[in-house]
Design a protein around this nucleic acid. Structure first.
Lengths: 218, 218
DNA sequence: TAGATTGTTAATCGATTAACAATC
DNA sequence: TAGATTGTTAATCGATTAACAATC
């Protein structure tokens, strides 16, 4: 295998593989099998092999995958062999938390600029960054070569920020606001929709009881 | 339709419907069609009708769905017609942000207890809550009838917290830590894995360029 | 060599979408 | 009545899993 369009599900699993591989690497584990990975990540080993095989032949039959080599390859696939700069808009509690979070991880993505529409917040410091006014967005994005934006403003403001991002040439957006957004073609949007995750969890509470009721219905 | 097991994908969309319906309700919109919903939420109208039809016949042919009635029904389905108490473990930046976030929304879920293993944090206040030591977890969960837990500790500690939650009788977990966790049968775990969402976004940067390269390969 | 494990094809499973009769 | 829109079946599409030859 090699060409074909890669499905989103596959791409979304790659960072999960990467994360565990990095752990293994820190423990000086040299080699890992799809079985090991599957056990640890609650995934089917065949799925893991298939995911990786979309991008090349990274393993050795009878042996498994070399941890360091696989890390390198996944970083290449994700275009994370270079550090990517990220802009964040919304210097509220969540935005601040993400900026600080950011500083402790030495990941290949880094928040390098923070913006807020509120003049009471601009000029303030978050971690080692200064909160900039929205009017500086495009100039800063251009200057720093930023391609990814994070939205941590209230739902009401989120679409406006997405529009500003798109206008500034941002190509990928991670939206934390609880709202579905429209973006132009060529811009990709992912959702970190934890309120939806939380509310949907409620459905499964008292699952056994619900099943009993279900039986009564039939 | 009515029985059948409901797929996770369907359940995860219900809060998204709910959120937009609440917006419509605030704007005094009485009725909405699956077409309207689909346009707004970037979903196929047939999918929305099918999702809702799993749970009953909520619409009127030729008319659409009554907004207030549909809200009521979805709240019932999600068991959110009563307020659910949530426990949060990890009083760091992210945990604090979620607690504060919490206070402004009048959702049917509420963080009612915060815990941390760090004695320097216990006793401190977050919003109107006092950070409790982990040893109080089970007692508080029992006393307040908490069924859902949020994990906002570092990845290294996350499995331990999940174990504590399960032992305390928590039935649903939302994990923000970048790690895959094991939970016993009967406990449901959802992931708010924004680092994975962010890293996977990188794959799509320079998509056009990548496609060109793909063409050269063939 | 025997045992382990990949890469890959084929089979299965599940989810999305199209289409349309029913009906408001 | 004519137009709109649901609920639902059938068709399509896509993703996961099983199975196994190849081979380290």
């Amino acid at each position: 295998m090699k060409p074909d369009k890669i499905s989103e599900a596959v791409v979304r699993r790659l960072p999960v593989y990467l994360r565990y591989l990095n752990e293994l690497s820190l423990s000086d584990v040299q080699t890992v099998s799809s079985q090991d990975l599957g056990d640890k990540l609650n995934l089917n080993p065949a799925q893991i092999r298939k995911d990786l095989a979309y991008f090349g032949e990274f393993g050795r039959k009878g042996v498994g995958y070399n941890v360091a080599y696989l890390i390198e390859k996944i970083l290449q696939i994700l275009k994370l062999d270079q550090t990517l700069g990220v802009a964040l808009v919304g210097a509220g509690n969540l935005g601040r938390a993400l900026c600080n979070y950011n500083m402790y991880t030495k990941d290949n993505m880094k928040i390098v600029a923070v913006f807020d529409a509120d003049v009471n917040k601009t000029g303030g410091r978050i971690s080692h960054l200064t909160v900039q006014p929205m009017d500086d967005l495009k100039e800063t994005v251009d200057r720093l070569g930023i391609t990814i934006g994070i939205i941590t403003v209230p739902a009401m403001e989120a679409q406006k920020v997405a529009d500003r991002f798109a206008a500034a040439g941002i190509k990928g957006i991670l939206n934390f606001a609880p709202a579905v957004l429209k973006v132009p073609a060529g811009v990709r949007i992912h959702y970190a929709d934890f309120t939806a995750e939380l509310l949907s969890l409620a459905y499964y509470m008292d699952y056994e009881k619900r099943m009993e009721e279900g039986k009564v219905d039939e």
